[in-house]
Design a protein around this nucleic acid. Structure first.
Lengths: 357, 357
DNA sequence: TCAATTATGCTCATTGTTAGCATAAGTGGT
DNA sequence: ACCACTTATGCTAACAATGAGCATAATTGA
């Protein structure tokens, strides 16, 4: 009984006995103090909250709510509805991410619960909208993905922890062909062996870490008997037993880290060809503020002068005539998004001009 | 009774009385003779087949099948299963497109049927796999989207039919603000008023044509009392009554044209940063063959010499040493996809080097 | 006033793109 | 054999975009 889902209780009888429900997840992103943060809640009644856990740190969960097939006219309106109801937040920009429908992605299914299809959305909100109601908190998304941060942590996690562990994983594969495939996947995903780092491949990296058990939920799922196969099957305890995964990753409920990875990758890609960063900024901003937000999202540092040239010459912003004086140095011009760019360029985005190597 | 869905009958009792079903759609694309074609079927029992239709041309439908929540381990496997069962085709590359869950997108809901959520997939198959079983046929996708073809038809449809009609639509809006928004959307979507044509904006263009009733299904949906609102509400018979839409568009069932638009836009975007075109080509091909496929998909013509430079210097292909002699001119080198490019470049795609203006 | 900090202007070499010109090597017809 | 025609392929000049850095400007705090 402990895994009874909240929305089974709250919804009308229409769902009772149904083999199928749709759960809407929200990855609500804001950037504060140069850190991308997502809104997380405490998952109401998840197995990991039970006492069979060694470390009792309860996993964070993405906010979620049910689709009410009878009441919600569209999925997006359903999402907006329960986000409003539960957090009081009125979402602006939202974008559907993907639909996750693997069996047993919700362990409740193992006990006869309905098949839960999850349709997560990405939502971007402005800094100032920080309103934390109930158990909801903002959490730096790099706490869930330390290896994605090449700005603050220099991502030594990869060299020191991930790369060696993956190397073991490669070598433990008896089949030389599959071995090569593993190596190729790893080198492409993590930018090893001469391959350049691609900040968009968040999901590929996650999938690899899941398969290799370097991420805590793999062990948890395996204990529950959930198979989450991709290309190559997980050969359980291939890795040295003491290294139970990448250190310092916050636990996450269900497959929410996978969803977050999807969101991060999508957003990192999208800022390059769509002016979505501005959803995360106040109406007026300095170019450095803009740069910091882009850097925070992409997880990489950018060349300041080139960034400013790109964004100004690209017609993405225009001067407001105002100045920001509290910069700690020379005052900076304040800019705002230049809407006309939409007519001029087919794919107006910020790109990552001058990524530091 | 005429609208009873096939899978309600074929599936187990688990679905009986359920308020929710998931339908998997497949947009199966192949390129033959320089034309992108999709696999269409005749929709089993759709209202448009009834005799209340003036022109009795039955609408084409995308192949679809139900998700069996009890049997299908993943959505993708469910898709592959019924495609195999119904067409004998074993799909290779597939990619989830989007999830459409608007109420009444299936008119059966109006008569108490379950809410039908559609999860369409894009599948790419090779030319030779053309196997048409049952009612399934291959159909040039530009028959459904004449205005997307700037290669064969020069797309005079836009100048002669669409642009004037949209101009009327703009002028018929009493509110000057909303009027401006309409104009901006149109100019951006259709590349009018100095804005460049963006071949990826297939869905935006479709949405506009739907809203303005230039596409046959708008009238049909309105007759059925289905609201499919986006930003601005459809003001029904704003347009001159005689012009009942763009000429020569093949009718499509349900919201399948919207799904196809999503697929086209996605594919047109994806070829630029992912080497997916090769899924549509034989293992060995000439550079012109490759170019023709890209052109067919993107709907625009490319500069031959620049295309070949781009694709060769970009490391996307490698020579096989073989020659194609039946070119009708000088024999051409045969190339194949160069897999190593995946390691070298973060986003290896074909791009559209040298689009003809 | 100095050091530190941030903003902003400008350069230069490199690389990539656009739009062509020109040549090569086949075809079919007369 | 010669022709017109087709397709393949090599090459270039002008221009645009990018990467990396130097230099200067305008603030603040010690």
């Amino acid at each position: 009984m402990r895994k009874k889902r909240k929305h089974e209780g709250t919804n009308s009888r229409k769902h009772e006995g149904s083999a199928l429900v749709i759960e809407l997840n929200a990855v609500i992103v804001a950037v504060t103090d140069g850190k991308p943060r997502i809104l997380v809640v405490q998952h109401p009644d998840h197995p990991e909250n039970a006492d069979d856990q060694k470390d009792s740190l309860p996993p964070d969960a993405l906010p979620f709510g049910p689709l009410d097939p009878a009441a919600d006219r569209t999925l997006e309106l359903g999402l907006r509805r329960w986000v409003r109801e539960r957090t009081g937040m009125e979402l602006g920009y939202v974008e559907q991410l993907y639909t996750f429908g693997d069996r047993n992605r919700d362990p409740g299914e193992l006990e006869g619960g309905p098949r839960v299809i999850s349709v997560p959305y990405l939502a971007l909100v402005k800094e100032r909208q920080l309103s934390d109601m109930g158990t909801a908190r903002w959490q730096d998304w790099y706490e869930f993905f330390p290896w994605e941060d090449w700005l603050q942590r220099h991502s030594s996690v990869i060299d020191e922890e991930i790369a060696p562990a993956l190397e073991t994983w490669i070598r433990n594969d008896p089949d030389p062909e599959s071995c090569d495939r593993r190596r190729e996947r790893i080198e492409i995903a993590f930018g090893l062996g001469g391959t350049p780092w691609d900040e968009e491949k968040v999901l590929d990296r996650y999938e690899l870490l899941y398969e290799t058990g370097l991420v805590p939920e793999q062990a948890r799922d395996q204990e529950l008997g959930i198979e989450y196969e991709r290309e190559s099957p997980v050969s359980s305890v291939e890795l040295s037993t003491e290294s139970s995964g990448v250190s310092l990753v916050r636990p996450m409920a269900l497959d929410h880290r996978r969803i977050l990875a999807t969101a991060m990758g999508r957003l990192r890609g999208k800022i390059k060809y769509r002016p979505v960063v501005f959803e995360l900024l106040p109406r007026n901003f300095t170019l450095l503020q803009l740069q910091r937000v882009v850097e925070a999202l992409a997880g990489v540092g950018l060349h300041k002068q080139n960034f400013r040239r790109f964004v100004e010459k690209g017609g993405l912003v225009e001067e407001t005539g105002q100045w920001e004086t509290k910069t700690g140095g020379r005052p900076a011009k304040l800019f705002c998004f230049r809407r006309e760019v939409l007519r001029e360029r087919p794919a107006p985005g910020v790109g990552l001009p001058g990524v530091r190597h």
